[in-house]
Amino acid sequence: MQKYAINIAFFVGCLLIVLAAQFGMVDLYVQSVIMFMGINIILSSSLNIVNGYMGEFSCGHAAFMCVGAYVSSVVTVVLFAQNKIFGAPILPPDMAVLFMPLAILIGGLVSAVVGILVAVPSFKTRGDYLAIITIAVNYMVISGIENLEIIGGSRGFMGMKQVVYAMSDVVNIPWMMIWTILGTVFTIWIIRRFVSSTYGKGISAICQDEIAAEIMSVNTNKMKLVAFMLSSGLAGIAGGLFAHVIGYVNPQSFNILKSTECLVMVYLGGMGSLSGSVLSAVLFTLLLEALRPLQIVKWVIIPLILVLLMQFRPEGILGNKELGDVFPRLKRYCRFK
């Protein structure tokens, strides 16, 4: 029992959050902060696969989030909501409850496929050249969507609120909160299992010495493909959740600034540390909200804090260690495989 203390505490905590949201004990603002926290955790830990574990420098993570957000939104809106262009819902809106996670997964799958756009060039080139390719892909995705009038172009795409309301009409519980928590747990679980398997450790081998990895029988091209697709697919899931939490997406919400936020969270937490990514995503979200009253000055103070942090602790909060390595006692209370 003691072994699972933290797991149980986490589960109870999530349950309490959902219950509190259900009975209106926390207001909508706090709820949305918690949901953004979850989305940020997905973003930072998924980018950590590529930038931390594999040691590449991908700066266009928001592009995949964008693809996921648009694909899952279009799927749910076409199927379950009244829309000017797509017309009446194809399926009865009640079914949204069942279909929601599937729609978000479809968004993730499509953005995993888009991830190939970045993965294939990474076979031949790495480092700064790859960085530029990811930036270019970020611009291309945004620009491509801005030119797709059918999904709203640069004005953005909406209608996801209707789908969320349709779910609440069936059973009135905070659906998006539940999906976000499940999505976050799913992401961490998958990444944890991937990077702790010998298969997944192949990407760490690529990070530390690519030539040795290739000669020691690691299929580096395939591993890169898997890592990029996993990372972008999870980012797509984050995007899908984001779109349905906000109820509205605009291509410019996924610009380079958003990618920069993802980068900041990864490097703040420490490259190659999953718990570091989670921790930094939580801290970063809280910091953003705490400094909200400062308006634009916020975006001076946050970078300043980071620059100072880099000066004093250049390896990020946890370096490349996990929380369990820093506090070995924690391991006694937690089984996480």
Binding site: T198, Y199, Q208, A212, A213, M216, S217, V218, N219
Partner: peptide, 20 residues
């Protein structure tokens, strides 16, 4: 050219990647 941030055991395990 060992992978310096991984344990000796992991070094030897990863080298068997082709027959996982």
């Amino acid at each position: 050219r060992l992978w310096h941030d991984m344990s000796v055991l992991d070094n030897i395990r990863i080298a068997q990647h082709y027959r996982l």
